[in-house]
Design a protein around this nucleic acid. Structure first.
Length: 400
DNA sequence: TCTGGGGTCCTAGGACCC
DNA sequence: TCTGGGGTCCTAGGACCC
């Protein structure tokens, strides 16, 4: 086997995150089946999962599976705080952290061997630190690639640690069911099953051309690469979101679907989104209206502006126009969800300043950023990019 | 009480430009 | 008469993830 590197990528994933926070904060819930969310299951403790309860399941179905499960309403602010505390542990472990969602991240620990030890030692310490400092169980997968690290944590759950050694990757990967592959959901799994393809090894035996003809270009290539354990993507620090949206499920009563009621929902959604845009200092050019119907079919309508904005009235006017154009042309009855999103995001008011900065001095960047805060206010700096002196192009921040 | 709310990425067709 | 090719942007829909 040809080995190209060490297993230095960690995928850290909190177990049954919302439910674990609830069990941490209320000792009476520990060891018992806990469901977060009453309408639909947002999270289920492992004791609840043992009864077949799954995330996104309807509340009634979940109660049918386990009538004595304890149902708690979500406390989003508690989960945000817990997430923040866990990410502080991540950042303390390595500066190379790529957050994927509220409860999972990739960590690159390749450069830390002399300082912090092997990947396994770092992962073991990370799990202990998260438990000690935040009180939550976390599973870590360790591998040479992001994809494999994520597969490993999925297999190791709950409260586990799994290392895939570089010389045992395909032996680990090929027996797994295709659903373990990142990007294979129910539709793709069904298409593959129809052709008798059940394991990753089955996928690996197919030509890329065959996969592309079955699943489309990107999915086919993606799957082919993953089945052969090809994933060159590095851990990326500081990825920013590309859209901000909000949606609201409306009741089935006639009056809640009236034009007036729908308009009130749109007004509230746009208000919430533009507040979030402004507090994040982002602006967007594309307004997207999402609609969902009784039969779970969906429709979207969008409009792109010439200039990006976070202005409530402007975005509301566009959203209303989209509603007005969409509703008569959509024959389906029974609207059940209205959503608005703003995409094509950009930073609001990017300031480019030429400041003296000496890369050999540790404090120079902090001093320069303090200077900007002094001039433009304490929240002015959300991101700093080093620019080349002559080129004006971003330069990577690498140690000398 | 069937199915929340927050996102990402890809495809495909048409407009438009060179 | 026949007939480009490459590229970007916009829109709508779909699959997938947590």
């Amino acid at each position: 086997m040809f080995v190209t590197g060490d297993a230095t990528i960690l995928h850290a994933d909190l177990d049954a995150f919302y439910a674990s926070v609830e069990q941490r904060d209320d000792p009476r819930l520990r060891g018992r089946p806990v469901i977060v969310g009453s309408g639909v299951v947002l999270a289920a403790s492992y004791e609840a999962k043992a009864f077949g309860i799954r995330t996104a399941m309807g509340g009634r179905q979940a109660r049918g599976l386990c009538p004595w499960a304890i149902i708690v309403e979500p406390r989003m602010s508690a989960y945000s705080a817990a997430s923040k505390a866990v990410f502080e542990v991540f950042e303390h472990t390595t500066p190379l952290v790529e957050g994927l969602s509220i409860d999972e991240a990739f960590l690159e620990v390749g450069g830390l061997r002399r300082v912090s030890g092997t990947s396994v030692e770092i992962a073991t310490r990370l799990r202990r630190d998260v438990l000690d400092r935040v009180g939550l169980p976390i599973t870590v997968g360790v591998a040479r690639t992001k994809f494999l690290a994520k597969v490993a944590s999925g297999v190791a759950k709950p409260d586990g640690l799994l290392v895939v050694p570089p010389d045992g990757e395909l032996e680990f990967l090929h027996p797994l069911p295709v659903q373990r592959l990142w990007g294979v959901g129910s539709v793709t799994a069904q298409k593959l099953r129809e052709r008798g393809i059940r394991t990753v090894g089955d996928v690996a035996r197919l030509d890329e051309i065959v996969l592309v003809s079955m699943l489309g270009r990107a999915s086919g290539r993606h799957l082919h690469a993953l089945a052969h354990n090809r994933d060159p993507r590095p851990v990326q620090v500081g990825r920013r979101r590309g859209s901000i949206g909000s949606q609201h499920a409306i009741g089935r009563a006639r009056q809640s679907r009236s034009p007036e009621a729908v308009d009130a929902v749109v007004v509230a959604l746009v208000d919430r989104i533009t507040r979030r845009l402004r507090s994040a200092a982002r602006v967007g050019r594309t307004v997207v209206l999402r609609l969902r119907f009784d039969d779970y079919s969906r429709a979207t309508r969008s409009h792109t502006l010439a200039r990006a904005t976070a202005h409530t009235e402007t975005i509301l006017a566009i959203a209303r126009e989209l509603v007005a154009t969409a509703m008569p042309t959509i024959a389906r009855e029974g609207l059940t969800l209205v959503g608005v999103a703003v995409a094509n995001l950009d930073d609001d008011g990017v300031v480019q300043l030429a400041l003296p900065f000496d890369r050999h001095s540790d404090n120079a960047l902090d001093t320069a950023l303090d200077d900007v805060r002094d001039r433009f206010g304490s929240t002015a700096v959300t991101r700093a990019v080093l620019l080349g002196r002559r080129t004006g192009q971003p330069v990577p921040m690498l140690p000398d």
